[in-house]
Amino acid sequence: MTEHSLESLNDRAIIRTLREKHIDTEHYGIGLAKFREIRESMGLQHTCQQGHTVESIRDAMMDIRQMYPKAGIREVISLLFHEKNMSVSRTIVSSYFAIFEPELVHECKARCLKRRRFWAAGVNDLFAVNQHVKWLRFGLGLHTGIKPFSGHIMWIHVWHSNRNLQLIYHTTLIPSKNSVSDLGTKNFGIANAQTLLRQHYDPDLRGMLQHRWMRFKKIMVFCWVFIPWLQHKLDVYRDCVNNTAKRHDRNKILPHGVPSLIYDSPQDFNALDFKVT
């Protein structure tokens, strides 16, 4: 459990998790009153204690909207918490949208999303990788790895190319039951590395591919200045996504909850873990 994942847990749930997984209760103990005393001494306040209003969050919202112009209420609440250290209620954010962004509220209620089916057996059953080429006209390429069962983002890396095989190998040396990607030479290395690792730990897999296929010039000063800043922003976004519970979806049969908690403790969600140890 990370400090960021505490956003989705109340005091009693945090204490229960600490007792079960982090504290040797035979020698140590912690109660609700003591925990609240420690939390308040660290300046960590609940939403009602911070007492934010539509006006008090306006500057922060304007800043966030520059980077995330289409973020919805749940995502904005999480962004305020992770990037601005502000715990804001859904009612306040909803009121802000109604006052300052009514057109986006109407767009959200249009219900134009199309559902797609996805199936995974458990945590570490497979991970999906892909490259993003839409920024190549700016001299930037993204490469991403996601655990789709838990929704846990493993990495989002930005570089002046997403075809650097050494860079991709460095991030994908994680033995897993399967990896999946679109067909392309930049992903051949991932397929080979995953196959080699799986066959090393399980000789019965020899001869079988452990990967699933789904069918300019650079301004180096710009890259040197901009890429570290952008990578920091991507890392913050990754942590935000990994430590925020998704909206409950009655059509989803995969676990509901905080992705990092599902990934780290699949047994708590009645899920299997296929990690190769």
Rank of each mutant, 00 (worst) to 15 (best):
T171Y: 12
T25Q: 10
L209W: 06
N251L: 12
Y237K: 04
H248G: 00
L140H: 01
K114D: 06
F127I: 11
K21L: 13
V129I: 14
M154T: 02
S8H: 01
S150Y: 09
V258Y: 03
T2S: 15
P69N: 07
V258Q: 05
N162M: 06
V221C: 08
D249R: 03
G184A: 08
P259D: 06
I99A: 08
L230A: 09
A128C: 10
L165Q: 11
G72M: 11
A33I: 04
T171L: 13
D202A: 06
W135P: 02
N187S: 08
D11L: 01
K109P: 00
G31E: 05
W119R: 15
Y28E: 01
F222E: 11
R206Y: 14
H27S: 13
R39E: 02
H4N: 09
Y96K: 04
I174C: 08
V258K: 04
P259C: 06
T277M: 12
F138K: 14
K186D: 04
V236A: 01
T2W: 11
T172M: 05
I23R: 09
N242G: 02
N10G: 05
I219F: 04
T91F: 13
R74F: 01
Y68V: 04
A245F: 01
K134H: 03
E103M: 11
H82C: 06
H27P: 02
M61K: 07
S94N: 10
G29A: 09
E40H: 15
G151F: 10
L136R: 13
I92E: 07
I15F: 04
L9N: 02
A193Y: 00
I92T: 15
N85P: 00
D24W: 10
R65Y: 07
G122V: 05
F81L: 09
N124T: 02
A128G: 03
S87H: 14
H46W: 09
F149M: 04
R12A: 03
V236G: 00
R212T: 14
E55I: 07
C112G: 06
Q194I: 02
R39G: 02
K114C: 11
T171A: 08
F35C: 03
W213G: 06
D24Y: 10
V76L: 15
M1Y: 11
L234C: 12
L18Q: 01
I156V: 15
L136E: 14
S95M: 12
T144F: 01
T244Y: 01
Y68A: 10
R117S: 10
I92Q: 05
N85F: 05
F269D: 05
H152F: 15
E7F: 15
Y237F: 14
R206P: 01
L183W: 03
L113Q: 11
I92W: 06
P148C: 06
F81K: 15
L80H: 01
M154L: 15
M214V: 10
S179E: 04
S181T: 14
N242Q: 07
L205T: 14
P255D: 09
K109W: 03
L136N: 14
Q66I: 12
V225L: 13
T277R: 06
T277C: 06
T91W: 10
T277I: 11
K186I: 03
F216I: 06
